[in-house]
Design a protein around this nucleic acid. Structure first.
Lengths: 151, 151
DNA sequence: CAGGAAGTGGGGAAAAGTGGGAAATCAGGG
DNA sequence: CCCTGATTTCCCACTTTTCCCCACTTCCTG
């Protein structure tokens, strides 16, 4: 499981240095093969290749006639690109994805279990504060899974 | 599986350079023979020839008296044109199809499993943002497959 | 303080992308 | 039937980007 938030900087070529504490895990799990794609919140998702392939299988099995399912396929599969950790522990993020997520230099890498999220730092901070402010007024329409969640 | 979004530019003659990472796969799968046709969202679909032939078989077997089926046949089979990757890794897109999809110079090539989608860049970005904006307020009428999808 | 590991920047070779010209092919009209 | 003009096809050459590797700096640790 990947956990924790790390502030990272992209260099002028759009390369991201993977924090050292994840490298061994990534090397052993997927031999340095990662897949990056987009998320609806305008951040990027980064999966080890085998985990992504499982997601992809789920995605392509969704009913093709459903509008929402097609959108999800288009976006997630459409933007998914495979990338490899180089000799220096860095990955080159495709220009299209950097532009999508508004990434330039300062970014946040957020461990999320089987994947990472990658945010432009400014956007991350803004969203985070919004979430914290919004949490109270969630009350009535809470789904069952959340209703009984005990932290 | 084809994945990933690539920004491509059509030259003055309407030629599209196939991104290198797909070329080998295309060469081995269909010896450079692709089929392009139209999609209802005003983009183009690009299949390796054998994949297209399978689609085509399915299409012509649809019940001929059904109005929707006939529309689909007319559009997809009617616009389908075979094209070949040239020595420089480019394909020439027929004028009719370029006009249909509103393609001039800047375009996005979107990998979608067994096929590609080709969009005018501006139109792609607009649609994408619409999809993302629409996704949030989807709440109640979510199909079961999506309801419990865990990414 | 020294040694090493991690982070960061950058140069250069190679490959990919891009434009354009010449040859070939086709269509239409004289 | 041939000539002319337009379109397509093939190929060459230039420009840009990418990829790979090296080197420097910084931070942590012993």
């Amino acid at each position: 499981m990947f956990r924790g938030a790390t502030k990272v900087t992209l260099d002028a070529k759009g390369r991201l240095a993977v924090p050292t504490r994840y490298r061994e895990r990534i090397a052993s799990r997927c031999d340095g093969h990662l897949v990056v794609t987009v998320d609806r919140d305008y951040c990027l998702l980064m999966y080890p290749l085998p985990d992504w392939e499982e997601i992809e299988r789920k995605l392509v099995r969704l009913p093709s006639l459903n509008k929402q399912a097609r959108r999800l396929q288009r976006l997630m599969v459409g933007y998914a690109s495979e990338l490899e950790v180089d000799g220096n522990g860095r990955v080159l993020l495709p220009r299209e994805l950097r532009e999508f997520a508004g990434l330039d230099r300062q970014a946040m890498l957020i461990g999320q279990g089987n994947k990472f999220e990658l945010w432009d730092e400014t956007r991350w901070n803004e969203r985070r504060d919004e979430w914290l402010a919004a949490e109270d007024d969630a009350g009535p329409d809470l789904p069952a899974e959340l209703e009984h969640l005990s932290l």
